[in-house]
């Protein structure tokens, strides 16, 4: 994996390798640094064009003074650094939005994993009539963007077929619609993954008297666990990040998800609560980013598995 040409000088490595990589990392991280810095400034400092915007001056001064005097004063740090964080967590519905997001993402992920596993297994292993056609149809669904469907879908969610009930303003509106893009995604990823598992393992189990379903649950599923795990993780992040359906189907501030709540409730008319907006953006991103950073390797594995399939 490491290909370092013989005789490559340090200067050349710096120029073609370290420096570009450094700029890529800078490019990727700068907006997050900006969220952090802005969230740590007082509103007055945010709107003060005389001070250097790259550093939260009041906050930094407080921290430096305390380190200097070896005297810890939590209240001062709270007031000078985390004022907006406290406001966000205490005086807005942010925690509520976080709960809503978690609930919707977890339930729709499990629904999608279940439907995705069964469908992917059928497509990868069972040679039933029309399997190819159904596979293609699911793949096409995977490529249909939500923005093509949101207008009629809002009508359908407002008056469900057969049941004649409205799911608008309920988390269930999101729980039933998120699987429309999660299931095709999971199915596509897992079909590829199942195909990499040797058929002979199941066949051996079935010769030993296991039924096909037993073979699927006891043999294939445990082997596919990395694939299932990465599918689940992506389904979770995709639903935690979804914006359009959540924007249209939910009206009440207390029922919103994090992305919609932050963008619609922390901006009042043309007043932008930048401190709270940036704290919200940061705290809303952290959980998703944390899960991801633990699974980066799985992602690469899942991606190759899916593409090979």
């Amino acid at each position: 994996m490491v290909r370092r040409a013989v005789g490559e000088t340090f200067a050349k490595r710096l120029l073609v390798y370290h420096l570009p990589l450094f700029f890529f990392v800078l490019f990727a991280l700068f907006p997050f640094y900006w969220m952090l810095v802005t969230s740590l400034k007082s509103t007055r400092e945010t709107y003060n064009r005389q001070v250097n915007p790259y550093i939260p001056v009041a906050c930094a001064t407080t921290v430096v003074a305390q380190v200097h005097s070896l005297h810890f004063n939590g209240a001062a740090i709270m007031d000078n650094c985390f004022y907006h964080w406290r406001t966000l967590l205490r005086d807005t519905l942010f925690v509520r939005w976080l709960e809503n997001t978690l609930f919707v993402a977890i339930v729709s992920t499990f629904i999608s994993l279940f439907a995705g596993i069964t469908a992917a297994y059928a497509l990868a292993r069972l040679n039933f009539r029309g399997a190819d056609t159904l596979g293609v149809l699911i793949f096409i669904t995977y490529l249909v963007p939500p923005t093509l469907l949101f207008i009629p879908l809002s009508d359908v969610i407002g008056n469900l077929p057969v049941l004649h009930r409205s799911l608008l303003n309920s988390p269930w509106a999101l729980i039933v619609t998120y699987p429309t893009f999660l299931i095709p995604f999971c199915t596509w990823l897992l079909t590829g993954y199942f195909r990499t598992i040797p058929k002979e393992l199941e066949e051996a189990a079935m010769i030993d008297g296991a039924t096909r379903i037993q073979a699927m649950i006891r043999i294939v599923l445990p082997l596919a666990l990395p694939g299932v795990l990465s599918a689940g993780m992506f389904a979770f992040t995709l639903s935690a990040n979804e914006f359009l359906y959540a924007l249209i189907f939910i009206y009440d501030a207390s029922n919103k998800t994090v992305p919609v709540g932050v963008v619609s409730e922390l901006i009042k008319g043309d007043v932008f609560y930048w401190g709270e907006l940036m704290s919200g953006a940061l705290l809303g991103s952290v959980p998703v980013a944390l899960i991801y950073s633990f699974f980066v390797e799985h992602y690469v594995a899942g991606m190759t598995g899916a593409v090979k399939g």
Binding site: P31, F32, W34, M35, T38, T237, A240, N241, F243, V258, P259, V260, V262, V263, L277, M278, G280, A281, G284, S285, V288, A289, Y292
Partner: peptide, 11 residues
């Protein structure tokens, strides 16, 4: 990875 609207707010 992070929700697009949240990073868009930073931009």
């Amino acid at each position: 990875i992070v929700p697009t609207v949240l990073s868009a707010i930073a931009f």
